[in-house]
Computed example of a mutant assay.
Amino acid sequence: MTDESHAIHVLVPDLPKANALTPLLERIDKTRRYANSGPLAQAFTQVAAALIPATQGANAPPHAVPVASGSAALELALRAHGLPPGAKVLMPALGFPAMASAALRCGLVPVFADISPGSWTLTTHMALDAVRAADIALVMPVAAYGHALPAEDWDEFYERTGIPVIMDAAGAFPWQAVGRNVCVAFSLHATKPFGIGEGGLVVTRDDVLAERVRRLADHGFSHGLVSEPGLNCKMSEFHAAVGLAQAGRIDGVLAELERVRIAYAERLAPLVGAVSLQRGGTPPRRSLLVMRLHAMAADDMAAALGRHGIQTRRWYCPPLTAHPAFRHVRLLGPDAVARLPVTDALGPTLLGLPYHTSLTDADVAEVCAVIERTIAESHPPGDRP
Rank of each mutant, 00 (worst) to 15 (best):
Gly70Trp: 12
Glu237Arg: 06
Leu138Asp: 03
Gly179Thr: 04
Arg212Phe: 00
His239Met: 14
Asp207Trp: 05
Ala302Arg: 08
Ile166Val: 15
Glu26Met: 11
Ala137Lys: 02
Ser287Ala: 14
Gln176Leu: 13
Thr343Cys: 11
Asn19Trp: 12
Leu90Ser: 02
Ala295Asn: 09
Ala190Gly: 01
Thr321Gly: 08
Pro283Gly: 08
Asn19Met: 07
Arg249Ser: 07
Ala151Tyr: 08
Val337Asn: 09
Ala263Glu: 15
Gly200Lys: 04
Val290Thr: 14
Met301Arg: 10
Ala143Val: 00
Leu51Val: 03
His219Ser: 12
Gly347Lys: 12
Phe44Gly: 06
Ala143Thr: 09
Ala255Cys: 06
Phe112Lys: 02
Ala172Lys: 04
Val65Met: 07
Glu377Val: 11
Val364Gly: 09
His147Tyr: 09
Leu188Tyr: 00
Asp135Met: 06
Glu75Tyr: 00
His125Ile: 03
Phe112Ser: 06
Gly382Pro: 10
Cys317Asp: 08
Ala98Cys: 14
Arg292Phe: 06
Ile52Gly: 00
Thr123Val: 04
Thr357Pro: 06
Glu75Pro: 00
Gly352Ser: 12
Val226Ser: 08
Gln246Cys: 00
Met126Arg: 13
Ile52Tyr: 09
Phe44Gln: 01
Ala185Lys: 11
Arg180Tyr: 04
Gly382Cys: 08
Val337Asp: 07
Gly38Ile: 06
Gln42Lys: 14
Pro341Met: 12
Val203Ile: 15
Ile250Arg: 06
Arg205Gln: 07
Gly82Asn: 13
Tyr316Ser: 10
Leu104Gln: 15
Glu26Asn: 04
Ala269His: 05
Pro348Asn: 08
Ala144His: 10
Leu128Gly: 01
His189Asp: 15
Ser101Tyr: 11
Ala298His: 09
Ala303Ile: 03
Gly118Ala: 12
Pro62Thr: 11
Gly252Asp: 15
Ala297Val: 07
Glu26Gln: 14
His189Met: 04
Ser287Tyr: 09
Val139Tyr: 01
Pro229Met: 07
Ile310Lys: 05
Arg212Ala: 12
Ala73Pro: 06
Ser101Met: 10
Val242Cys: 00
Ala172Arg: 01
Arg330Pro: 01
Asp299Met: 05
Arg286Tyr: 08
Ala137Leu: 11
Ala169Met: 11
Leu254Cys: 10
Thr360Leu: 05
Thr121Gly: 05
Gln46Val: 14
Gly382Phe: 14
Arg313Ala: 08
Gly230His: 11
Ala247Ile: 00
Ile262Trp: 03
Gly146Thr: 07
Ala77Trp: 02
Pro284Gly: 01
Val337Lys: 13
Thr124Ala: 15
His323Thr: 00
Ala103Thr: 06
Asp129Glu: 15
Lys234Gly: 03
Thr374Cys: 14
Leu108Asp: 08
Arg249Tyr: 00
Val275Lys: 10
Arg27Cys: 02
Arg313His: 12
Gly171Gln: 09
Val272Ser: 14
Ala58His: 09
His147Trp: 05
Ala322Ser: 12
Leu340Met: 13
Lys30Glu: 11
Leu74Thr: 01
Asp168Asn: 15
Val139Leu: 09
Ala80Arg: 09
Val329Ser: 10
Asp299Gly: 01
Ala72Cys: 01
Gly38Asn: 10
Ala134Gly: 03
Ser378Lys: 03
Gly82Cys: 02
Val65Asp: 07
His147Leu: 15
Pro229Leu: 06
Leu21Trp: 01
Leu346Ile: 14
Pro270Met: 05
Thr121Asp: 01
Pro348Val: 12
